[in-house]
Design a protein around this nucleic acid. Structure first.
Lengths: 104, 104
DNA sequence: ATAAGACTTGTCATTTTTTGACAAAAATAT
DNA sequence: ATATTTTTGTCAAAAAATGACAAGTCTTAT
């Protein structure tokens, strides 16, 4: 999926021919705020992922992957993180994983 | 650098034989909070990067790279983002870069 | 043309999260 | 043992995110 998470939601919504108001209601959200989410002016709150999955009958894990990759992709973008640096970041993530083991 | 940013600061500090109190003062920070930062219980605020660079005579850009990779590494860790998903995230970052071009 | 519905934008109070500051306990060094 | 250093807990203040509403634009049907 080559789109922001907001664009992805809009895609799902329009494909199902739902209005902002209709979908927002199902997500327990204001339609104005859903509009902002779709337009990348607000973030989608992780706590609503399961609702979103149910509404569009999506696999929650896959949806969460979409969400997480968007989150990190956004950070990569915001910080101007190059591919090279991203590899360093990945190493550091691995390192953090080893930290926990040490505590055990 | 295979360490969290907090650990990295601690490394720098001890290498220079500074106490928490001394370094904290130079960073315009409470020593108790610097302790938390070094122990990963708080985040280092980006706005102090330049001070940190000056104190230890580090290249600000390189230091910022350390900081950014820590930031993203932490996110990768927290979200359990696999290498595969990370590639997706990278694609999404690229996509975001193209979005701006479209506006121009 | 205009009325209705759909979407967008701006604002603001509330909530949540982060930060700074201080006190006191724990660990370490002298 | 005392002094110094470091850690931990707490809390108020600052900052950021969120929910809600009002008013705006745009689109479509009549």
């Amino acid at each position: 999926m080559n789109a922001t998470f907001g664009e992805y939601i809009r895609l799902l919504r329009t494909k199902h021919e739902l209005t902002l108001t209709k979908l927002a209601a199902q997500l327990d959200l204001d339609s104005a705020n859903l509009s902002k989410i779709e337009n990348g002016k607000r973030d989608f709150d992780e706590k609503r992922l399961s609702k979103l999955a149910k509404i569009f009958k999506l696999d929650l894990k896959e949806l969460r992957n979409e969400y997480v990759t968007d989150l990190i992709g956004k950070k990569i973008y915001e910080t101007n993180c190059t591919k090279q640096l991203l590899q360093v970041a990945e190493k550091k993530a691995e390192y953090r994983r080893t930290l926990i083991e040490k505590v055990i």
